[in-house]
Lab assay of single mutants.
Amino acid sequence: HMTFVALYDYVASGETDLSFKKGERLQIVNNTEGDWWLAHSLTTGRTGYIPSNYVAPSD
């Protein structure tokens, strides 16, 4: 899985979304859904959809 880092805080707007904090590391499970990607937080262990423009590839 690709690892990304959150650029901003995001508060989930629905049950399927994943809240995260700036700097949180996320594994992308599925990024074929356009602007919303299914991600797994390496910080909280939770999985949900995130806005793709809130994250950047982590080196």
Rank of each mutant, 00 (worst) to 15 (best):
H1M: 13
H1I: 14
H1Q: 15
H1N: 15
H1Y: 15
H1S: 14
M2A: 10
M2S: 13
M2T: 13
M2Q: 09
M2G: 12
T3I: 15
T3A: 08
T3L: 15
T3V: 15
T3S: 09
T3R: 05
T3H: 14
T3N: 08
F4D: 00
F4A: 07
F4R: 03
F4H: 06
F4M: 13
F4T: 04
V5I: 14
V5H: 05
V5C: 04
V5N: 04
V5S: 05
V5K: 05
A6G: 06
A6M: 06
A6N: 01
A6T: 06
A6D: 00
L7A: 04
L7H: 03
L7V: 07
L7T: 05
L7W: 03
Y8L: 08
Y8C: 07
Y8W: 15
Y8M: 11
Y8D: 06
Y8K: 10
Y8I: 06
D9S: 07
D9M: 02
D9W: 01
D9C: 04
D9A: 05
D9P: 04
Y10A: 01
Y10L: 03
Y10V: 02
Y10G: 01
Y10K: 03
Y10T: 01
Y10C: 03
Y10P: 00
Y10W: 06
V11R: 07
V11H: 11
V11K: 11
V11A: 10
V11D: 10
V11F: 11
A12Q: 06
A12T: 04
A12K: 05
A12Y: 02
A12H: 05
A12I: 03
A12S: 11
S13K: 15
S13Y: 11
S13A: 15
S13W: 09
S13N: 13
S13I: 13
S13G: 09
G14P: 03
G14S: 15
G14Y: 11
G14Q: 13
G14H: 11
G14N: 15
G14T: 12
E15V: 09
E15Q: 11
E15L: 15
E15M: 13
E15F: 10
E15P: 13
T16W: 15
T16I: 09
T16E: 12
T16Q: 13
T16K: 15
T16A: 09
T16V: 08
T16S: 14
D17A: 09
D17G: 14
D17S: 09
L18Y: 04
L18K: 02
L18N: 02
L18T: 04
L18Q: 03
L18C: 03
L18D: 01
L18W: 03
L18S: 03
S19A: 07
S19T: 09
S19H: 04
S19M: 06
S19R: 03
F20T: 02
F20V: 08
F20Y: 01
F20W: 01
F20E: 00
F20A: 01
F20S: 00
F20Q: 00
K21V: 14
K21Q: 09
K22L: 05
K22M: 08
K22R: 11
K22I: 07
K22F: 05
K22N: 04
G23A: 03
G23I: 00
G23S: 03
G23L: 02
G23R: 01
G23H: 04
G23N: 05
E24Y: 01
E24M: 01
E24Q: 03
E24D: 12
E24V: 01
E24W: 02
R25I: 14
R25E: 13
R25M: 15
R25V: 15
R25P: 08
R25C: 07
R25Q: 15
R25K: 14
L26K: 00
L26C: 01
L26S: 00
L26Q: 00
Q27W: 15
Q27G: 05
Q27E: 14
Q27A: 12
Q27Y: 15
Q27V: 15
Q27H: 13
I28H: 01
I28V: 14
I28A: 08
I28Y: 02
I28E: 01
I28C: 04
I28G: 03
V29Q: 08
V29I: 14
V29F: 10
V29E: 08
V29Y: 12
V29D: 06
V29S: 07
N30A: 11
N30W: 09
N30K: 11
N30H: 11
N30M: 12
N30Y: 09
N30L: 10
N31Q: 14
N31S: 13
N31H: 11
N31E: 09
T32F: 09
T32S: 13
T32E: 14
T32A: 14
T32K: 12
T32M: 13
T32G: 10
T32N: 11
E33T: 15
E33Q: 15
E33G: 14
E33P: 09
G34L: 11
G34N: 13
G34P: 13
G34Q: 14
G34M: 10
D35Y: 12
D35K: 11
D35F: 14
D35A: 13
D35P: 09
D35M: 13
W36T: 07
W36A: 05
W36Q: 06
W36G: 03
W36D: 03
W36C: 05
W36P: 05
W36I: 07
W37D: 01
W37Y: 06
W37S: 03
W37F: 06
W37P: 02
L38N: 02
L38C: 06
L38I: 07
L38R: 04
L38M: 08
L38E: 05
A39H: 00
A39E: 00
A39S: 02
A39T: 03
A39R: 00
A39V: 13
H40F: 14
H40T: 15
H40I: 14
H40Y: 13
H40L: 15
H40S: 10
H40V: 15
H40D: 03
S41E: 02
S41M: 02
S41I: 02
S41C: 04
L42Q: 07
L42F: 08
L42N: 06
L42Y: 09
L42G: 04
L42K: 05
L42T: 08
L42H: 07
L42I: 11
L42P: 10
T43D: 15
T43Y: 08
T43N: 12
T43W: 09
T43I: 13
T43M: 09
T44W: 02
T44L: 03
T44R: 02
T44E: 03
T44V: 02
T44S: 14
G45M: 06
G45E: 05
G45K: 06
G45V: 01
G45I: 01
G45A: 04
G45Q: 06
G45N: 12
R46M: 15
R46G: 10
R46Y: 10
R46D: 09
R46V: 08
T47K: 09
T47I: 10
T47A: 07
T47N: 06
T47H: 08
T47Q: 09
T47S: 10
T47C: 08
T47R: 10
T47Y: 11
G48K: 01
G48L: 02
G48C: 01
G48M: 02
G48W: 01
G48E: 01
G48R: 01
G48Q: 01
Y49P: 01
Y49H: 05
Y49D: 02
Y49A: 04
Y49V: 06
I50Q: 00
I50C: 02
I50A: 02
I50S: 00
I50V: 13
I50M: 02
I50K: 00
I50E: 00
I50P: 00
I50F: 03
I50H: 00
P51R: 05
P51Q: 06
P51M: 06
P51A: 03
P51H: 06
P51F: 04
P51S: 03
P51T: 02
P51D: 05
S52V: 08
S52M: 09
S52R: 11
S52W: 09
S52N: 07
S52A: 12
S52L: 04
S52T: 06
S52H: 08
N53K: 13
N53V: 09
N53D: 10
N53M: 10
N53A: 15
N53Q: 10
Y54L: 15
Y54T: 05
Y54I: 06
V55P: 02
V55T: 04
V55C: 04
V55N: 03
A56Y: 10
A56P: 04
A56N: 07
A56C: 08
P57N: 08
P57A: 11
P57K: 09
P57H: 11
S58M: 15
S58N: 10
S58P: 10
S58T: 13
S58F: 14
S58C: 07
S58I: 15
D59L: 13
D59E: 14
D59C: 08
